[in-house]
Amino acid sequence: MPSETPQAEVGPTGCPHRSGPHSAKGSLEKGSPEDKEAKEPLWIRPDAPSRCTWQLGRPASESPHHHTAPAKSPKILPDILKKIGDTPMVRINKIGKKFGLKCELLAKCEFFNAGGSVKDRISLRMIEDAERDGTLKPGDTIIEPTSGNTGIGLALAAAVRGYRCIIVMPEKMSSEKVDVLRALGAEIVRTPTNARFDSPESHVGVAWRLKNEIPNSHILDQYRNASNPLAHYDTTADEILQQCDGKLDMLVASVGTGGTITGIARKLKEKCPGCRIIGVDPEGSILAEPEELNQTEQTTYEVEGIGYDFIPTVLDRTVVDKWFKSNDEEAFTFARMLIAQEGLLCGGSAGSTVAVAVKAAQELQEGQRCVVILPDSVRNYMTKFLSDRWMLQKGFLKEEDLTEKKPWWWHLRVQELGLSAPLTVLPTITCGHTIEILREKGFDQAPVVDEAGVILGMVTLGNMLSSLLAGKVQPSDQVGKVIYKQFKQIRLTDTLGRLSHILEMDHFALVV
């Protein structure tokens, strides 16, 4: 994948999101292997301009796509893939009243899908469409860049269908997702969380590099694949309309690839034109409109599966009536509230959605109805927002919020430890010299600072030695090549209790 991002070429006709291997024109390309080798690009942008032909009021008969309808489940399912879809609609009884809503608040519980998330729908649909058009064949390999849930859905379907599955996901995604993927037989590649989507090191860039190296491999490409919004247009939206008897006044959905909100909203605009569509985008993402909503100094966020630093091709923002931004604290607070007060075992993005819903639905009156999409299960986040310690460490809970008995030293300040200034190293000294210094002084790690004293990161003896043994660096290389740029900081005025929580999850903390 090139470091400079080429513009994806656009073909003359058809839909841009065809499933299957992508040609340089962004659509299915038939021909000899030699032709494909000559024409197939190194990668295709996940934010390529959409060429979708959908228009409100256009006859369904003019759609270029294969459409399906929700099917009634048999008493005995032939395999677990038949437990994807037909998820329950559940009334939220307490939270709406707590925040003064007059309307009825309903939750579409997508964590009841077989793999635990709304992404099971698009995973199965992308595979079925690729099999139907002859792209996927027995023994082929599926590769997908994902925040985890699409990966789980694909790995689940691949396990049943017999495909090899490789999932490329950023490091910030939970260990629970990784464990589930491994249990399903998927191979996992992790990428830096802070890598831009168009960087060769991003999950998108690495996935395309693997595709170019592995024979008979395919990126189904949830960011561009029409099967993504079509899955929701054909099934999720129809289920909502049936469950609500066609009567709903507002739908609120958090947005990642945009397939969920695009597919549902398009069908609702056709069948229930008075329904307002509300999009939820986390602070630090750029999906919301108008652009002024996205202006923030924050560039990272903890909530998973929603928000991006690019506009995915499948996201149709014209069908969203209003956007709201959400933050991590309210997302996790509301997710825990949904679990504790409503018994809905949902993930953090569901918290984002409901946090926005109780604001947006203030305009609705008694007798009206708001539906929220709860995308995934708490299963993926047992060591994250479900953990009091994690919430404390991230600053989303305060010590006084917890009532468990603490040891005698818990409320003492870090400054009472009488710490001395640490050994520091410059980023320009060599790895070999740094190892000598650390061994001589008896230290395992040291902060790396520039000549102005600005902290650049941390270097550890173990990481340097393993990097040297693996051949990633040489003793003569500058130590700046092996620094940890993500590390926890703590102030002298913070409590030892807070430091204790940090050290339970990290090997060190830097006192500043």
Rank of each mutant, 00 (worst) to 15 (best):
P2I: 14
P2Y: 07
P2G: 14
S3A: 11
E4G: 11
E4P: 12
E9T: 10
E9Q: 14
V10Y: 13
P12A: 06
G14F: 10
P16F: 04
H17N: 05
S19V: 03
S19K: 13
P21Q: 04
K25A: 04
G26Q: 04
G26W: 09
G26N: 10
G26T: 07
E29A: 12
G31W: 15
G31Q: 05
P33S: 10
E34P: 06
A38L: 12
K39L: 15
K39T: 11
W43H: 10
W43T: 08
W43L: 12
W43C: 12
R45A: 10
P46E: 04
A48T: 14
T53Q: 10
W54P: 06
Q55L: 06
G57K: 11
A60R: 11
S63E: 04
S63C: 13
H66C: 15
H67N: 07
T68V: 13
P70G: 11
K72V: 09
K72Q: 11
P74A: 13
K75N: 11
K75Q: 11
K75E: 06
I76D: 07
P78D: 08
D79Y: 08
D79N: 11
I80G: 07
I84W: 08
T87A: 14
T87R: 01
V90W: 01
V90T: 07
V90F: 00
R91V: 03
I92T: 10
N93P: 09
I95V: 12
I95Y: 00
K97R: 11
K98R: 05
G100Q: 12
G100S: 07
K102L: 09
K102N: 15
C103P: 01
E104P: 05
A107R: 02
A107K: 02
F112P: 01
N113Q: 05
G116E: 13
S117H: 04
V118M: 14
D120A: 12
D120C: 07
R121T: 01
R121Q: 02
R121S: 00
R121P: 04
S123Q: 08
S123T: 06
R125Y: 08
E128W: 08
D129N: 10
D129H: 08
D129V: 09
A130W: 00
R132D: 10
R132H: 11
D133L: 13
D133Y: 14
G134W: 07
T135G: 07
T135Q: 10
L136M: 08
D140L: 04
I143M: 07
E144R: 02
P145E: 03
T146D: 02
S147F: 02
I152T: 04
L154G: 00
A159R: 13
R161F: 05
R164G: 05
C165W: 01
C165Q: 01
C165D: 01
P170I: 01
E171K: 09
M173D: 08
S175A: 10
S175F: 08
E176D: 07
K177M: 01
V180G: 03
V180L: 09
L181H: 00
L184Y: 07
G185Q: 00
I188L: 08
T191H: 03
N194L: 09
A195C: 13
A195Q: 11
R196V: 03
D198Q: 07
P200G: 07
P200E: 08
E201Y: 09
S202W: 00
H203Q: 09
H203E: 05
G205L: 06
W208P: 08
K211A: 11
N212V: 10
N212W: 09
I214D: 05
H218T: 09
H218C: 14
I219Q: 02
L220E: 01
D221W: 04
N225C: 03
N225H: 02
A226H: 08
A226C: 07
S227A: 11
P229Y: 01
A237T: 12
D238P: 11
I240S: 00
I240W: 02
L241E: 03
Q243W: 04
Q243K: 12
C244D: 00
C244Y: 01
C244M: 07
G246P: 09
K247H: 12
L248I: 12
M250T: 03
V252C: 10
A253L: 11
A253N: 08
G256Y: 00
G256C: 00
G258Q: 01
G263R: 00
R266F: 05
K271H: 13
R276I: 08
